[in-house]
Nucleic acid binder design. Sequence first.
DNA 1: TTAATATATCGGAACCTTACGACTTATCCA
DNA 2: TGGATAAGTCGTAAGGTTCCGATATATTAA
Lengths: 118, 118
Amino acid sequence: MNNPPRKLQLTDLETLAQAAECLKVLAHPHRLRMLQMLRQGDFTVGELAESCGVASHVASEHLRLMQRCGFLESVKEGRRRYYQITETHLESILECIEARFGVKKVNTPTTRRAPSSP
Amino acid sequence: MNNPPRKLQLTDLETLAQAAECLKVLAHPHRLRMLQMLRQGDFTVGELAESCGVASHVASEHLRLMQRCGFLESVKEGRRRYYQITETHLESILECIEARFGVKKVNTPTTRRAPSSP
DNA sequence: TTAATATATCGGAACCTTACGACTTATCCA
DNA sequence: TGGATAAGTCGTAAGGTTCCGATATATTAA
């Protein structure tokens, strides 16, 4: 518990405020589950909602929030909308979280997307 | 945008709720700054408060919160209290955040702790 | 002992987040 | 066209977070 004098590696507070905003968006169990799924494939709002056990309009709100802050993009196909991860750094943060809290393989809990035919 | 059928790696929602709690605690610019500093040395409440530009009783509240959720431990020495990181996984998450948002070397912005003498 | 310093606690105000029901819009299909 | 399905929007109520001033406690120094 002895500090030799040296320079500190710090991030300025304004940037940390941005980082905190992103972490707030991550900090919700259903949003984490959705991101965990979207890392592994494309899913519709309804599929993500079902896996989280919430109404689809609630899932929709979470997804819009994540889209607004740059985590996701979406593509509409017919009356379905597929979300995808666009923020590449999410990968490593989600890995950290999984390393700390664990994951397990489960059978696909929702209908998976059928190959798209234009 | 085509998903071959395969198993998903998911974390159960209860565990994700715990993870979300931890992320909420991380999600504050002053707490991030404090953790960034504590990764690099031992600091008192007052030093951490000064670096964040907040009153020391506000810093104290943040530190207690992080202690309650298992991120930190503290040691009292005289009328000062030194906090230290105990949750080892914080290291990797902070690295992810720094990789995404950046850090820069700055001159020690606060008084550094003098070698302790029992 | 008294004064000053360092930290912590408490109650309350302002603000933000979430979930919900009701409603809207867009698309598909019979 | 009309009904069903998928997704999104809006207002609101409940609950949580953060900061602040006031105050309390512990420790050191004079």
